[in-house]
Write a protein that binds this DNA or RNA. Sequence first.
DNA 1: AATGAATGAGCTTTCATTCAT
DNA 2: CATGAATGAAAGCTCATTCAT
Lengths: 218, 218, 218, 218
Amino acid sequence: MGAVKNKRMPRAVREQQMLDAAVRTFGQRGYRAASMDEIAELAGVSKPLVYLYLNSKEDLFTACIRREAQALTAAVRAGVRPELPADRQLWEGLRAFFTHTAGHPDGWSVLHLQARTHGEPFAAEVFAMREELVRFVTQLIVVAAREAHRDPSLPAREVAGLAEALVGAAESMAAWANATPGVSARQAAATLMNFAWAGLGTLMQGRPWTPPRAAAEV
Amino acid sequence: MGAVKNKRMPRAVREQQMLDAAVRTFGQRGYRAASMDEIAELAGVSKPLVYLYLNSKEDLFTACIRREAQALTAAVRAGVRPELPADRQLWEGLRAFFTHTAGHPDGWSVLHLQARTHGEPFAAEVFAMREELVRFVTQLIVVAAREAHRDPSLPAREVAGLAEALVGAAESMAAWANATPGVSARQAAATLMNFAWAGLGTLMQGRPWTPPRAAAEV
Amino acid sequence: MGAVKNKRMPRAVREQQMLDAAVRTFGQRGYRAASMDEIAELAGVSKPLVYLYLNSKEDLFTACIRREAQALTAAVRAGVRPELPADRQLWEGLRAFFTHTAGHPDGWSVLHLQARTHGEPFAAEVFAMREELVRFVTQLIVVAAREAHRDPSLPAREVAGLAEALVGAAESMAAWANATPGVSARQAAATLMNFAWAGLGTLMQGRPWTPPRAAAEV
Amino acid sequence: MGAVKNKRMPRAVREQQMLDAAVRTFGQRGYRAASMDEIAELAGVSKPLVYLYLNSKEDLFTACIRREAQALTAAVRAGVRPELPADRQLWEGLRAFFTHTAGHPDGWSVLHLQARTHGEPFAAEVFAMREELVRFVTQLIVVAAREAHRDPSLPAREVAGLAEALVGAAESMAAWANATPGVSARQAAATLMNFAWAGLGTLMQGRPWTPPRAAAEV
DNA sequence: AATGAATGAGCTTTCATTCAT
DNA sequence: CATGAATGAAAGCTCATTCAT
C-alpha cells in the first residue's frame, strides 16, 4: 500500500499511526463493531503493541475523541479573525467548521455519531468540545446585538437556545454535506449563514414570531 | 410478583411487548451492547420465542426503527392542521415533534442515535423518515413564499438546504431539550420557530446575507 | 471413553459433571494453569455452558472448594461415633480423614494446595473447613483430659497450638501417604495416632518437656 | 526519587536483586500470577536483562526455590550445636526453623505453597530440601532412642512416619504462626517440642497406643 | 404457543519471550 | 552492560443463534 512495513519506530510516531487507524475504523464500523484486531492490522502493528501504548479499547476510543475534538476546535479557532465584525467571524467559523468536517469524515463520525452513542464517559468528552463551540456562537450573538446598537434585550436562555439551534443545525448539515455530492463546504456555510444571520437580525430588531395563545391549542 | 406470568397470548400482543422491550433496551444500551437475552427477559418471554417472531437481531432492530419512525411521523402529521397558514402549520409541527420526542426518549434515541450509527441498512430506514419531514418543511417554505406574494425566487437547492438546516436544528434541539431540565417541548418549539421564521421571512424579502468575495480569503 | 456423548441432560447432573472435571483439572494443573477449555472438554460440554451454569472461573473454583470441603468434613463426621471414648473418636476421625483424602487425591490437592495458594477468597473457604477440624480435635483433647481425671490445666492457647499441630501433621501426612506407595490410610492413621496420643497423654500427666532458659541462647 | 537509578553493577549483585524481587513477587502473587514485567520493575532493571541472567520464568523460579531452600536449611544447621543431647538439638532446630520462616515469609511462601503447587519440577526441588530436614529429624529420633538406652526397636518405617509427621506439623505451624499475631517463633517451637518430645518419649518406653482390631471396623 | 439445553465463533486482554541497537 | 520496540499464542468471557421437546 505504498507504506513499506515500517519497523522499529519511536513510540510517539506509532501512537499517531494507531490513532489514525482507530479513528478510521471506529468512524466507519462504530465503537463496538470495530475490533482491536482490525485496528492493529490497519495500523500495521500487532495487537499487544496497541494495548501497550493505548491501554484498552476504551482508552483508545477516548484518545481518538480527544484528538479529533481538539483538531476540530483548533481548526475553527484558526479560521476566525477576532478583529473582524461578528457576522464575518461567524461566517469564517462556519467555513472552517464545514471545511474541517468535510476533510475528516471519519473523525467527524467519531465525534458526532459514535462518541454520543456509546455511554456517558465518551459523550461527556464530546460535550465539552460542543460547549466550546456553543460558547463561541453565544458570544458572537451578544456582540452582534451590541454592534447593532441594541441592548441585549434577548434573555439569556433565549440566546442559549439559539446558539444551541445554530450549532445543532451546523452539525446536522455537516453530515448532510458530507453525504450529498456536489455540496461544498462553502455552500453549506453560506446556506446556514444566510438562514442564521437573517433570523438573528430580525430577532434583534424586536420583531419575533409570536406563538399563538396556548389556550387555542390542546 | 405483581404481573402474573403471562402465558399463551395472541401473537400480535406478544410482538408489541417484544418491541417495547427492544426499543427500551436498544435506546438505553445501544444496538451492539443490547443483548437478546436482556430483551427477552425484559419482554417476559424466552429467547427462542423472540427469534420465532422477529427472526434475528437485525430484523428486530429494523422493526423497532420502523415502528418508532412511523409513530413519530404520525404524531407530527396528526398535530398539523393543513387548512391553517404555513407559519401555523410549521409551529404545530414543531410542537408535535418536540412533544413526541420528549415523551418517547428511548424511541428517539433509537432513531436519532442508534439507527444512524450502526450501518447503512438501519441508517437508510431512518433516512426515509427524515426525508418525509424534510419534504414537509420544504413544502411549507414554498407555500410561505407564495403566501408572501413572492415568486419562489429561492433556488431549489437553497430551499433544500434551508429545510435540511431546520430539521437538523430540530433534531439537535430535541436531544438538548430532553437532556436539559426545565426546557419544555413548547419552549423548544418556540425558540426554534422564532429563529427559523424570522430568517425565512428576511430571506424571502430578498435581503440575504452576502458572503464576502472568495478572493478575500485563503 | 466409555461414556457416550451425553446430550440434553438436566442442569443438576451437568453441573456435577462439570465440578468433577474441574476438581480433576484444578487438582492436577493448578488454578491458573487449568484452562476453562480443558475443563469444558473433560466435562464433555462446550465452554459457554460452563459459564452459563457456573458463572466464572473464580466461581467454579469456589464451588469446587466448597463441594470438596463438605465432602471431607462429612466423611470425617460420618466416621466418628461420638459415644466412644476420646481416643477411639480421634482414631476413627483420623482413619476417615486419611481414607477420604486417599480416595480423592484431586479434591485433596484442591483443598490443601491449590485453594491456599491463590488468594484470600479461596483460602478463606478452606480455612473455614479447617477450623471445623481443629475444633473437633480441640474438643477431643479437652474431653480426654477430663476422662483422665485431670483438670484441664493446659492453657487454652496451648491446646489450640496442639490441635493446630495435630491437624497440620495430619494434612501433611495425607500428602505423604498419597505420594508414598505402600502406605495405607490405616497405617498413616496409626502412626499419627501413636505419636499424638502418647504425647498428649504425657502432657496431661503434667510432665512436659521444658525449654532451656532463654538466657542460655542468643 | 530516593534510590538513584543504579547503572552498571556487577552481575552477581544484579542477580541477587532480581532474585529478591522474584521471591517477593512469587511469594505474594503466586507463580502464575507473578509477571516478569512486575519482577523486572521491582528489581529496577529491564526485562531483557532478567532473561539474559536468569534465562526463563521457570529457571528464575527454580533459582528462587534453590536459594530459599538453602537459606532455610543453612539457618537450621547453623542453629544446631551437634555436641548437645538430642532433645536440645531438636529444640534448637525447631527454634531456628520457626525464626527463619517468620523472618522470610515470602521465601517460606515460595517453598511451602508456591513450589509445591506448580508442577513436578518445582516440587522436586522442595522435596530435596524437605528430605534433608526429615533425615535430620530421623537421626535425632534414633540418637534419642540410643541415649534412652533403648535399642531402636521402632521399625524404620515407623520412624520415617514419625519424622514425616513432625516435619509436617512444623511446616503447618510455621504458616499458622506467621498468620496468627502474638505467636512468637519461640512459642511455636515450644508447643511443638512439647508435643513431639513427649510423644516420642512415651513411644520409646514401649507403651504405644494400640489401634483396635481391624475386625471391629468396617 | 413456548422453552430448557446447548454451541460456534468471536472479542478483549495478558504474558513470556525476543530483536536490534 | 543494558534497553526500547515488538509479537505469537493463548486465556477468560459473551453472544447470536438453534435444536429437541
